[in-house]
Nucleic acid binder design. Structure first.
Lengths: 234, 234, 234, 234
DNA sequence: AATGAATGAGAGTTCATTCAT
DNA sequence: AATGAATGAACTCTCATTCAT
């Protein structure tokens, strides 16, 4: 059931276009039916190839499933790296990553379903090469968080792994709900408030609400905290 | 495959103890193998009954799966309501809920696996009565958040549904990682920092972090407080 | 492909009559079509059971094949032992064994086909428990040969294993030809001459052949035939 | 599956060297894996050609199998005819044939496996042209036997077909055992004793045991049979 | 002449589920 | 109430074979 990861057989590329069309068909079918309910025959029909052809390109139904993210995630990750070069400040970078993470799923509904409903619960997937690409993407977030800590943008006592868990957890939760219930019609609408809520917690210099409190609570003589511009939005 | 929800057949009482032992066996088997990889025969063996007997108590393998949470969630939820009576303040209540939510999974590893790896991705489960119990539990959180908004503990512009998504998402993410990778050895160790991070963002009046700061600042007249060492850990 | 020998699963006997009828059906189908050309579906149809039922009784198609000889050989072997008690003299015993060996195949055509055309070339069969029963039967022949050597009926320099190879080889050759070509219409008709030819070689005191010779020799007065060079060896 | 015998397609010559290398590869693979377990792909790999190329030279996997003996048997048979010219006496000729028959298999292990384990049980092979070559070789034996009968070397009442069955059966039995069990390490070591045993039975003039008998049975005036030297052994 | 690529056609096997006892 | 036994219904995967190039 687990066995061969990586590319099939002799790693022959065969026809890359056909390969991709099989992957797209699989994504669609898996997305709709789930892994076990989907049959290879379904996928073959959708891709306009024979079942046997699918096995030319992938060694098993499971490998086919696991191969779905590779392309999209690699592309996503590369673009992330590229974009982050032009963004200044850890906070802005983090915001960027969150936006992109959300839109990755928002823009690829079938992909979102496959990841959230199927792959996330699959133990074998973790042993996959493909999974590493995703992990690498995770490191991005950690690095940005660390950068923010180092340059004073974020609380110095921040636990990057926990914060990443919060970010990813929130996103996954939202995307999963969308997959299952169609609920947050627009995933994007959540992004700003999510970032806002998150930032109030992780910014070392919490210009927003947090500042008041300090002063307020202190009951000392001193200037009232001035709300910063980004609060105007909320 | 979907079909019958609710209890089996004529809802005959049969032997409730045996019913429970089947459920426990199923929980363990599903937890280890996943839904499709687990066989009714596996479960029957573990429960020391015949396969046919399982069908006396449950109409299908899927109904058996869906029946697993009912008991535990109902109990959890009832206790929540009870406990919250004695907790004062929305923030404290929320903290309580988060602790309890985490310990629900931490204390029931098999249950956690079943929920995170199997049920969360199952579309049919949403149509289930059992699912409602969980939803009701979700409402708890919303109510507490609203309460906090109303009494000024939380930001007035808070979006309760989003915050709940953040809380649940974070918890689910952590629990899932634990299920799959065994990573956060102790789920509880994350609770405080999670709450801390969350609170800094959602409290209109952030008593927590601020309080510490006050002390620091106290000794000074003038400049903004400089983060001290005790903040590092929370 | 090899794996489980011995009885299936929990060695449950289930319905022994049905088991036997499956075996008989398999024997017939395998006999006609060969192993790979025969399908489990063919056998199921012939036995009036479902394919799944076959897998209740046997773990695989191959185990089903290997289970065919057990019954018949065991029975054959037991009867051999019983009969030999009443036969006096190694030569007579050997003759008896040869007759019975031939009739085993002559009386069970399908069985003969399965053994000669399928099992004989199957490497996995050798690892089987069932194969041991056949081996035990082979020991009979060896014992009788040894007995004949010991009591002076057979040449003292006889090599029992070779002689057994000759006997079995001859029988198998004849049976195989019959299976494939239908050629020796009556296998039995060969028995006497085979035994006769064999005995002239292995009897220290060859009562048989001599009779013919007598006639030939009778007319001549003269020297005994001169051994030719090739005899020197023996 | 049966269908086309004879050479492939248009009997185009193609490259005879490549043809042979395919045959050799097939022999090796079939020998190791058996017919059904071997794949055309296996053979193609071993022969360093593509699968499709194999189908240029042979119409089917089965025809490929059936083509294996042709070469070797034809060669064997021609040499037999040649050699027999120089051998005098039917007994010597028969001995020669037996030696050669055994060494045919002893010297070509893969070929032996293919013939004994695969072809011997294959009904379709009988309908093949290739099979005729083998049959012709069988006629050799019959002719020699007949020659021996006619010139008084062998018993006049000998049944050539039975004797050939004994010879071939014995050889095949030994070779098969060697193929499956590796048992008679040296097939040749059996030849002499086999011939010896055989000759004592089929020689009109059996000098050994048989001689005495003649006298004894005859009840004529003459010396009692004297046990010959080889009896001293026992 | 040679082959990369595609596929038709099945086959064995597994399991959830049923039902007579 | 409990179950032994039976089975219907699929599904994944394999491979010999073909064909366009």
């Amino acid at each position: 059931m687990t066995g061969n990861q990586g590319n099939s057989k002799k790693n022959r590329k065969l026809n890359p276009v056909k390969r991709l069309s099989i992957l797209k068909a699989a994504e669609k079918i898996f997305s709709r039916k789930g892994f076990h309910e989907a049959t290879v025959s379904d996928i073959a029909k959708k891709a306009n190839v024979s079942e046997a052809t699918i096995y030319e390109y992938f060694t098993s139904k499971e490998e086919l499933l696991f191969s779905i993210p590779a392309e999209i995630v690699r592309e996503y990750q590369e673009k992330n790296v590229e974009i982050l070069q032009y963004v200044k400040g850890a906070a802005n970078k983090l915001r960027t990553l969150i936006y992109r993470h959300l839109s990755l799923y928002a823009d690829n509904e079938d992909y979102a379903n496959v990841v959230m409903l199927i792959l996330k619960g699959n133990r074998n997937f973790l042993k996959t090469d493909e999974y590493n690409v995703i992990q690498r993407s995770a490191r991005n977030t950690i690095q940005v968080l660390q950068e923010g800590i180092d340059n004073g943008e974020f609380r110095p006592d921040l636990q990057p792994y926990l914060v990443r868990a919060m970010i990813w957890g929130t996103i996954e939760h939202l995307v999963t709900r969308k997959s299952l219930l169609g609920k947050p019609e627009d995933l994007f609408s959540m992004a700003d408030e999510m970032i806002n809520t998150l930032f109030h917690g992780i910014l070392a210099d919490s210009r927003n609400g947090a500042i008041h409190l300090r002063v307020t609570v202190e009951n000392k003589i001193g200037p009232a905290p001035v709300p910063t511009e980004h609060l105007e939005k909320g």
